[in-house]
């Protein structure tokens, strides 16, 4: 379940909502569920609520596995 999309916060309002943009589409989101959000932060939004900040960069596990397999594939190809 659970569709979510990453949004970048443009402007935070005093009532706990914010204007945010995703893929050129702007809308109001709620910030009740994330700690100290700031303008410019990227957040994961589900059902109109930011459910997590995405400020830790890329996940290494995913990159490591793809790199390992594609290296192995490349090596096999050379051999």
């Amino acid at each position: 379940m659970c569709l979510a999309a990453p949004y970048t916060i443009k402007e935070i309002f005093p009532d706990g909502s914010a204007r945010a943009v995703s893929g050129g589409v702007e809308t109001d989101i709620r910030l009740d569920l994330v700690e100290s959000p700031a303008s410019g932060d990227t957040v994961l939004v589900h059902a109109g609520f930011a459910i997590q900040k995405l400020d830790r960069g890329e996940s290494e596990e995913l990159i490591a596995l793809w790199n390992e397999v594609s290296r192995a594939a490349a090596a096999a190809f050379r051999a």
């Binding site: 990453p6 009740d32 569920l33 700690e35 994961l44 459910i51 960069g57 996940s59 596990e61 995913l62």
Partner: peptide, 20 residues
């Protein structure tokens, strides 16, 4: 358990949301 996501998030989840 490992997590395969493009963007890294805390393994413990969202503690603010869980508290609420």
């Amino acid at each position: 358990i490992r997590a395969y996501r493009t963007r890294d998030v805390p393994r413990e989840g969202n503690t603010t949301a869980l508290r609420l």
